[in-house]
Design a protein around this nucleic acid. Structure first.
Length: 265
DNA sequence: TCCTATGTTGTATG
DNA sequence: ACATACAACATAGG
């Protein structure tokens, strides 16, 4: 489920547990989500620790504690919830932090998500190495052009999904951006005109910013004027042209596009 | 039974 | 070394 704005929304679900010590931690140390993390260290450090604040960048979430940094990636099916005291962990709850007022749960049936732990006060590399997200002022058109040049031979659908370039953009956002820009997802950066590059840049920033304002704030769906509510509908139609939408695999992912509006290469 | 799924990563190939 | 393409990961639901 989670892309840029969903991640931002889900991050805040653990707010009820901020500022209070973690009295107990329940977890499955051998779960795949802990791959690459020092599991024993994580468990020992988090017991008695205090969550101070959190932030999201792209699809990565970071919780700062008084003992180190907890990193959470939701993968495809990961989720965070805050439950009432006495909550009993379910089958897919891999990390449960019990604070006084709230039980903080990380759940993930498909185990594509990931939990990291870095002791100490310094920002860990997995956080500092994240790129500038597309909705920020620092993400300039010149920067965008350099990214297009770097990935000039790949289908735009695949290009927009590169997290080291467009942090937070996922499958539905990439389709939304290309649909808004009226550019076919199989087109390649090298073949774009200057005007098309500019249009794509604007669509990228618009979709990222507006998604954060709607989904990111209160999980409200984007309006019917977006591709979003139509893309998985049976017999879904383009909100601009009224023509039936096409679904096919492009760039390795199921892709929805509007024929007529987005002419194939 | 077979297909799909809002993601990342390892591996092969150019 | 870098860019590109694709299978693999694990589970649930239609």
């Amino acid at each position: 489920m989670p892309e840029l704005a969903e991640v931002e929304f889900i991050r805040r679900r653990w707010d009820p547990g901020l500022g209070r010590p973690i009295e107990r931690i329940r977890w499955h140390p051998r779960a795949r989500v802990f791959r690459g993390a020092d599991a024993a260290d994580l468990s020992a450090a988090l017991t008695g620790a205090r969550l101070l604040d959190s932030a999201a960048r792209g699809k990565q979430i970071r919780f700062r504690t008084d003992r180190g940094h907890l990193g959470i990636h939701l993968g495809m099916t990961g989720n965070l919830t805050a439950e009432s005291p006495g909550y009993l962990p379910g089958r897919h709850d891999h990390l449960v932090l019990e604070t006084g007022p709230a039980v903080l749960v990380f759940t993930d049936p498909r185990l594509f998500g990931r939990i990291r732990w870095s002791p100490g006060a310094a920002d860990p590399p997995w956080w500092t190495s994240l790129p500038e997200p597309p909705h920020t002022p620092g993400f300039t058109f010149a920067h965008f052009q350099s990214l297009l040049h770097r990935f000039r031979r790949a289908p735009l659908k695949a290009v927009l999904l590169r997290q080291e370039a467009f942090a937070g953009v996922g499958n539905w956002m990439a389709d939304e951006i290309l649909w808004r820009a009226a550019i076919h997802p199989a087109r390649r950066p090298a073949d774009l005109s200057g005007a098309e590059s500019r249009t794509l840049f604007r669509a990228l920033r618009f979709v990222c910013r507006r998604a954060l304002e709607t989904i990111g704030r209160d999980f409200r769906d984007p309006p019917r004027t977006w591709l979003f509510p139509h893309r998985w509908e049976d017999g879904g139609r383009c909100p601009r042209t009224g023509a039936p939408l096409v679904r096919e695999t492009i760039g390795g992912r199921t892709t929805c596009w509007s024929p007529g509006r987005q002419p194939p290469p």
